[in-house]
Amino acid sequence: MKLALFDLDNTLLTGDSDFQWAQFLIEQKVLDREVYEARNIEFYEQYKAGTLDIHEFLDFQLKPLARHPREQLDAWRSEFMQKKIIPLIAPGARDLIEKHKLERNLCIIITATNSFVTAPIARVLGIDHLIATEPEQKNGQFTGKVSGVPCFREGKITRLEQWLDEHNLTWLSFLESWFYSDSLNDLPLLKKVTHPVAVDPDATLEGHARRNGWPVISLR
């Protein structure tokens, strides 16, 4: 058996779904532009620089989910998918995914973005398995808090190994493993797989990839 892991934002997508979700809510006047837009941009710049405090960001990103009933959130998400996400699917993303599926590799999207935002994206891309940051829920409604370990940096390894354990698998279950990512934040997991691949990478990851002989590809 072989394992293919895919980062989502700026890898299979040509933008960041977390950032776009907040911008979408601002455009819908769900969130106040004056209060939220500058903060959203600030967090995104911190993420790209590798300085993001994930717990501070999740407090910002998940609280709006707790302020609205699930039915309304689902309606907004459907519109968000059509307007913001479908146009962001990288031109080469589906071919790359299909290549691994044809080889019968276990395909998983693993992303720091929360599962409410990313679950329908995984479905559209045809990937059955998603490991994402999980928003806490009670009685079917979001609490505004995170459940468990955020799927970010070293947390991606933790969450992946938890997922593998739940499916009676370990790293030793796989003859080979791939991880495709654009971000310096994913260096911990990239170093764990047998085939790390930098996809349209940021400058830090590209430099690391080239120094270590990792493939650098573009899906755009």
Rank of each mutant, 00 (worst) to 15 (best):
Q28F: 00
R77L: 12
R123M: 08
G155Q: 12
P215T: 12
V199T: 11
S177A: 13
L164S: 11
I54P: 05
R153A: 10
T14K: 10
F24N: 03
A198H: 13
A4M: 08
H195I: 06
Y180E: 13
I109V: 05
I97F: 05
A66M: 06
A112K: 04
R33K: 12
F142I: 08
A22K: 08
K101F: 06
D186F: 07
H55N: 14
C107S: 15
Y180W: 13
E161V: 04
D95R: 07
V35P: 01
I121Y: 07
R67H: 11
G148T: 04
A93L: 08
F116G: 03
G207Q: 15
D95W: 03
S17V: 08
K101T: 06
G50L: 08
K48M: 10
T133F: 07
S115W: 02
H129S: 07
E134V: 14
R33F: 03
Q162H: 14
D182K: 05
V197G: 11
F80P: 03
E166S: 11
F179E: 10
L169W: 06
K2F: 00
K48S: 11
Y36Q: 00
D32G: 03
D59A: 05
M81N: 09
P201H: 08
H208S: 05
P69V: 04
A90I: 03
T51G: 07
P69S: 04
L31E: 03
I85N: 01
E134S: 04
V149Q: 13
L205I: 08
K99P: 00
I131D: 09
E42H: 06
S218K: 07
D16Q: 04
R39C: 00
Q20A: 13
A22P: 00
K48I: 08
E34V: 14
P215L: 01
K63G: 00
E27N: 10
I127H: 02
A132E: 14
V149I: 12
D7F: 01
D74G: 00
W171I: 11
G148Y: 12
Y47P: 09
L88A: 10
Y44R: 13
I110V: 14
H208G: 00
I97Q: 12
E42Q: 02
R104H: 15
L172Q: 15
